[in-house]
Design a protein around this nucleic acid. Structure first.
Lengths: 324, 324
DNA sequence: TCGGTCTAGTCATACGTTTGACTTGCAGAG
DNA sequence: CTCTGCAAGTCAAACGTATGACTAGACCGA
């Protein structure tokens, strides 16, 4: 490439990196750019990395890409990263028990510049200790370590408040059966709010399930059979399972049973009746996480407090006054 | 690291790459491995790449990660890649009009070893011409270039056949409004099969829409109003919109209207009644695409013919004999 | 004429590996 | 005692880039 343009390799580098100011004549600059274009020349990224020590790739670890919600987060993250010249490596934490070790390895080996982990569990989190300055955690287990947090508690408060206001007194909680802080927070917030407004909360009014449709449907059936008139779900998918369960039991929503979801994925508007649910602004979440990580990596002002993403209750047609 | 173990860095390299056979004493091997573990040493990937010329990253370009279907494909791809020591870079083609240029650049600059493109359009496809040996296309526009193809035609044939067998004669086609070969194939296969079995196909019995819920619902309403008794949809999401439309028009499924989807995502079983749809084995698809790419990159036997992924019609409760 | 300054570049090194070619020490054969 | 062969390592070159240090020439003022 340098040979082709009859200049030294250094000159090429200077021009292509825009550091030619006062060192290379405009004519030469044009010549080099033209030659580069003609040959379709691309600097070798590995060599650049090796020399400069910094790469432009980051990893985003999500629990389950199959869930549309994480898809939304990922797209937003990818866009935000791209705007700043970075690429995003995909890591699915459910299919790889060693994901945290792998990520740390990637950071150590400079394969990636840093990473974002979505709701890591405490065990995984510990492994990131000595590369902590290259990691942003969303909903970290350790308070203060989070880069991005959600206002889970206040959202769950709105959910319970909404149902109580409609007149429900036997409110069930359909929880997600995953050992994540976010779900423990939801449970805690649910119970706290129930107690605060003086509603009883029977242990039979609590069910937990994975997101597998059949499993969740069975769990939901039992929960409904316990006599609740409303259900707060930890996820829209669980709400979908609750719909199925209700239908199989011959109950109508919201006439016989009110249901509230969580996440507001597309499914929420495709269910009938449309699902009342908590909206998480996935795009803002993804964008914010990437922004924080890159700011830190590039040495910009480090913000000590986590970014708080506000959730909001979207009331649709799946909630109404109790009928039974 | 080499200093720490009192050996030369060549020796370290040999041991860590398992090429120590007959060149390094077992005792030294152990020493080096132990030291590496103790220091948490990771070889610098950029340097390795630079030296060897081959990287272990590949990119997977999908149209829209937010659709759960692509999530499934991606997970499978990521797992398959990981098993062979590769990482997967995410590229969303809808949010980046320059995605193909970027991918070609990444290949040229050796940032990635190769890539997979899911249903590229003809224009994008052309840009990959001179790096074709590092690209696997799923449902390519140019026949014979595909690495992986789907049996779209025969699937659509099953759909029409199923509906005709139930007694439907006015069968509508709710198409996806995207300029992709896969959707053109579906349209063509639909029309061909209708003609083959001697059914008329009015142009009013054809609608096309993007996947945006409200838009799709309106389009579906018009289609239903045209008097069809059954609808074959290009995607489960469109089928979901058809459900909405039917409800808004006061029609019941499958009593008044039969609906068939495409893809068999989780939504299909959450809709009520459960959706009859075409199942695409997403995991096999993702795995196969990665397998072909890596085989090619690593110089294994090149298979001249594309892999065919078989689709199958899953009959659930959304189809029945016509009632109107 | 000479020293000084500026412009337009080139030179050489370092980044951390991999790998074919070389070295060293030692045992056994002749 | 020398020679051969082998085991166990080391040497050094290369991969493609970025960049601080250097230089050749032009031009100017004194």
């Amino acid at each position: 490439m340098a040979r082709e343009a009859n200049v030294s390799q250094s000159t090429v580098s200077l021009v292509l990196n825009g550091k030619a100011e006062g060192r290379v004549a405009p004519a030469t600059r044009e010549l080099i750019k033209a030659t580069a274009a003609r040959l379709g020349y691309r600097p070798n990224v590995s060599a650049q990395m090796l020399r400069t020590g910094v790469g432009k790739t980051l990893a985003f670890a999500v629990p389950d890409i199959q869930q549309p919600f994480f898809g939304e987060v990922l797209v937003a993250a990818e866009v935000a990263a791209r705007e700043r010249g970075y690429s995003v490596l995909l890591v699915d934490t459910t299919t790889d028990p060693l994901w945290s070790e792998r990520l740390v390895g990637m950071i150590r080996s400079r394969m990636i510049a840093g990473c974002i982990t979505y709701t890591p569990d405490a065990e995984a989190e510990a492994k990131f200790a000595d590369v902590a300055d290259r990691v942003v955690m969303v909903e970290s287990e350790t308070p203060g370590r989070s880069g991005v947090d959600l206002t889970i508690a206040s959202a769950m408060k709105s959910v319970v408040g909404h149902l109580a206001e409609l007149g429900h007194r036997r409110i069930g909680h359909f929880a997600a059966l995953y050992p994540k802080l976010t779900f423990r927070s939801r449970r805690a917030a649910f119970l706290a709010e129930m107690e605060r407004i003086g509603l009883a909360s029977d242990t039979r009014w609590h069910a937990a399930s994975t997101f597998e449709v059949e499993v969740a449907t069975e769990a939901a059936k039992e929960l409904i059979a316990s006599g609740v008139t409303a259900i707060a779900c930890d996820d829209d998918l669980l709400a979908g399972a609750a719909y199925r369960a209700a239908r199989q039991l011959g109950l109508s929503i919201p006439g016989d049973l009110s249901v509230v979801g969580f996440n507001d994925v597309e499914l929420a508007r495709l269910l009938h009746p449309e699902l009342t649910t908590v909206r998480i602004p996935a795009d803002r979440l993804g964008r914010e996480a990437v922004g924080r990580l890159l700011d830190r990596l590039e040495g910009k002002a480090v913000r000590p407090h986590p970014t708080l993403i506000d959730l909001s209750l979207i009331v649709r047609q799946s909630t109404a006054r109790p009928g039974r």
